[in-house]
Write a protein that binds this DNA or RNA. Structure first.
Length: 423
RNA sequence: GGUGGGGUGGAUGAGUGGCUGAAAUCAGUAGUUUGCUAAACUGCCGUACGGGUAACUCUGUACCGCGGGUUCGAAUCCCGCCCCCACCGCCA
């Protein structure tokens, strides 16, 4: 969430930023500022009373020690009178703080100045695009036909076991998934990211920390009995590793990577968007996360973008990089680059990675801090990106690399997959 | 699931109603001593939200797992919850 002190002193900036993000409830800002005023007021008052009570209580102890019972008793009744006021004030204070916090978590992050204006995906800015597109042979098929032809994924049985959107990978399809995961992780760790295998289920505090709650409550699978959520991305457990910690500056930047399955309810989607592997409820993804000092986060973002780009290039997939416009970026993000690969048979772009700088929006909730040179605590910046999401990579590989003789496997994957072609 | 033990600052760990925001030790940090390393000695060494200030400093309050209660006063007593450890049961 945004920092109160920042909102207080930069109201115009906040309003402009929210507008750029096409955030509706602009009035929240004024509400927050006014609640904050009330809060400060109440706190000052109640602090004063508490201070009085504390001194009086201490004196009672001293008086009793001196045997001055009488005076002690008068003091006692004085404090008892204070108590009513204190209870009333702290009650109000709690109420106001609660309201303030409720409103505060509803404000999205502000966009960086590089973020283009715009409302929908149409307005995203294309930063880079591969010049070449594969020329498919006549009779080339979309991936949902190819996975049947080569018996790689069995959607029917997935439906039987669970329901639609839960693919059952099979044989070479399963092995290709495993090869991709292994390759991605090796690629990330070679770049200095520490590998983790986090829990795939998180508690509400973790989901709040990264901003999935309360914003995207309905998109996560929820286990009621235990009040836990299936992770929609490894970002959630991994970013929470450093929750409530003050990280020594010497350890920065923190670079982490993790493979996890991801679970998304994706309520309301339909049509060709969800055909085949384009959109599913459970999928595999390898994630990268960084925690950096505030001054370094945009350099880290560039570094992560270059990192993901090289990974896609190494697979030989046609791609483009988009800078998301204010209306299309996520709640918590300050600047996001999306990577899309071209899926030649469908003739459409598929998002395979989203690399974002959250600045201190997540770390403010998570309380991830460091000490600066003056010894003051400072919030870190958090960033993450997919590296990469598997199903759409698979879809794109199948479609782009199909030949009449079979599916060609990219060079870099062959050691992991153990074959150069799927026939 | 059952029984027992326990949750205190970066770590270990003392503290059973006021002198405790919290001993001591270790780690960290600044310095002194030292031919270097090591050792020894000295100072500093929690977070958040307020007030005040040009700033350093100063100052108030809260926080000893979380929430409530008792009391003039709670880390300390009472109640509820969460978590951890050990053993037993079950089990990949």
């Amino acid at each position: 969430m945004l920092q109160l002190a920042f909102i207080r002193t930069n109201k115009e900036k906040v309003l402009n930023g929210l507008q750029k993000k096409h955030f509706q409830d602009i009035h929240l800002v004024d509400e927050i500022i006014s609640l904050d005023e009330q809060r400060k007021n109440l706190q000052t008052q109640s602090d004063e009373l508490l201070s009085k009570r504390n001194t009086a209580s201490k004196s009672i102890g001293a008086l009793i020690a001196q045997g001055k019972q009488q005076e002690a008793e008068t003091n006692k009744s004085n404090v008892a009178a204070l108590k009513e006021q204190i209870d009333a004030l702290t009650g109000q204070l709690n109420e106001v703080e609660q309201q303030l916090n409720q409103q505060l978590v509803r404000l999205p992050n502000l966009p960086n100045e590089l973020v283009p204006n715009g409302k929908t995906a149409e307005d995203n800015q294309v930063m880079k695009q591969s010049p070449d597109f594969p020329k498919l042979h006549p009779g080339a098929k979309p991936h949902w036909d190819l996975i049947i032809q080569y018996d790689l994924v069995d959607f029917q049985t997935g439906v039987k076991i669970t329901g639609s959107g839960f693919p059952l990978y099979k044989g070479r399809g399963a092995k290709l998934q495993r090869a991709l995961i292994q390759y991605f992780l090796d690629y990330n760790t070679a770049a200095g990211y520490t590998e983790y295998i986090p829990p795939h289920i998180v508690n509400a505090s973790s989901a709040y920390g990264t901003g999935q709650l309360p914003d995207k409550e309905g998109q996560m699978y929820y286990i009621k009995e235990d009040d836990l959520y299936l992770i929609p991305t490894a970002e959630v457990p991994v970013t929470n590793i450093y929750r409530d910690e003050i990280v020594p500056a010497s350890k920065l930047p923190i670079k982490m990577t993790a493979y996890t399955p991801c679970f998304r309810r994706e309520a309301g989607s339909f049509g060709k968007d969800v055909r085949g592997l384009n959109r599913v409820h459970q999928f595999d993804k390898v994630e990268i996360v960084q925690l950096t000092e505030a001054a370094n986060s945009y350099a880290a973002l560039d570094q992560m973008v270059a990192h993901v780009e090289q990974l896609i290039i190494s697979l030989g997939l046609p791609y483009r990089i988009l800078r998301l416009c204010g209306g299309d970026m996520s709640f918590a993000s300050a600047l996001t680059y999306d990577f899309e690969v071209y899926s030649a048979a469908q003739e459409r772009w598929l998002e395979v990675s989203s690399v974002s700088n959250f600045e201190n929006f997540q770390t403010n909730r998570l309380k991830v801090r460091t000490k600066d040179e003056q010894g003051k605590t400072q919030l870190l910046h958090s960033l993450n990106g997919s590296s990469l999401a598997l199903p759409r990579i698979l879809a794109s590989m199948l479609e782009n690399f199909q030949t009449p003789e079979g599916i060609q496997i990219p060079e870099v994957l062959r050691p992991y997959f153990g074959a150069s072609v799927i026939q």
